[in-house]
């Protein structure tokens, strides 16, 4: 049972930072950026490149996050700001194109072979019947700390208030003298950084590989929509719910139903779980589970 909770927690950590950034940025720019998961993939490769150039691990991860933030900002300014003038649908299709370009570039530079970090092997921690590796533990802790910081930022600072005001009513916020473009750029940079950080920490245990972004696309979007796009805290809750469902589906033994001892759903079908949740959410709760609570500032 403990292992079940640990697995759900680990999966939540996989998704949380990236979903958070996606949802936060959506609140300001109002289009679902498909390329967002590819920023995570870029972050993973940057961290790997910096690490293999000889930098210590923490420096590589931090540097990779900052670089990914800058990349996100540059793409936002050069591409999406212009596309958004033609409407969110055009911008979304544009983000699909950007996503493909990013994948193709990484494929061209780094190749299709996954790159594993050469980390010293350490024995995992054993808590009861559950096991968690040190890298994973750090990943979860970092995610928790960042989420706490983010909540404090959003609800207890002037900047957070401005962000919420802008997300809630851009015209009014602008009229009240808030510098909309500066806040948007700041949030773009932070959301890119979070994606880069999420991707690079994920790659510490799974390696930097070109499908990292695509593998995240469905669960991350399902989590963000479930939490209500534009609602960053809801997005994290959505990520936790997706993680719980995926872990549950993985662990349910269908054996007794079929008269055998052990029958599990093949792992390749498990992403269908997030797909199903996404579909249900869109049908019954298109604005997310926590819609009403967060619309007000």
């Amino acid at each position: 049972m403990l292992q079940f909770l640990v697995d759900a927690l680990l999966r939540t950590a996989d998704l949380a930072l990236i979903t958070l950034g996606l949802s936060m940025l959506y609140g300001l720019i109002r289009f679902p950026n498909i390329a967002h998961v590819q920023y995570a993939m870029c972050g993973a490769f940057l961290a790997y490149a910096i690490n293999s150039a000889g930098a210590p691990l923490i420096v590589s991860v931090v540097l990779a996050s900052i670089l990914t933030g800058l990349l996100t900002l540059v793409i936002q300014l050069l591409v999406f700001d212009r596309l958004l003038k033609s409407g969110p649908a055009i911008a979304m299709i544009g983000s699909l194109a950007v996503s493909m370009v990013l994948v193709a570039s990484v494929l061209g530079i780094a190749g299709s072979f996954p790159h594993m970090f050469s980390l010293p092997h350490t024995e995992p921690l054993i808590i009861g019947d559950a096991r968690i590796s040190h890298t994973q533990l750090w990943f979860v802790l970092t995610t928790l700390v960042l989420l706490t910081l983010f909540v404090l930022l959003l609800f207890h600072t002037q900047v957070g208030r401005a962000m919420r005001a802008l997300a809630c009513n851009p015209a009014l916020a602008d009229a009240s003298g808030l510098n909309a473009s500066r806040i948007t750029n700041g949030v773009t940079f932070i959301s890119g950084m979070l994606a880069g950080l999420g991707g690079s920490m994920l790659s510490l245990s799974t390696g930097a590989h070109v499908n990292l972004g695509y593998d995240l696309l469905l669960p991350v979007f399902a989590a963000a929509i479930l939490g209500g796009l534009g609602n960053p805290i809801g997005a994290v809750a959505g990520a936790a719910l997706i993680a719980l469902t995926e872990t549950a589906v993985t662990n349910i033994n269908f054996g007794p139903l079929l008269g055998e001892t052990l029958v599990f759903l093949p792992v390749s079908y498990i992403s269908a779980a997030s797909f199903l949740i996404l579909l249900l959410a869109l049908l019954f709760k298109p604005y997310g589970l926590f819609d009403r609570e967060v619309r007000r500032v």
Binding site: D7, S205, N211, N251, L262, F264, P266, V267
Partner: peptide, 19 residues
């Protein structure tokens, strides 16, 4: 378990087998 090639993690498959 017959696993799908080219994945970055096989944690879930392994946990199923371990049961």
């Amino acid at each position: 378990i017959l696993y799908t090639g080219g994945q970055s993690t096989y944690r879930r498959e392994l946990q199923q087998l371990a049961r």
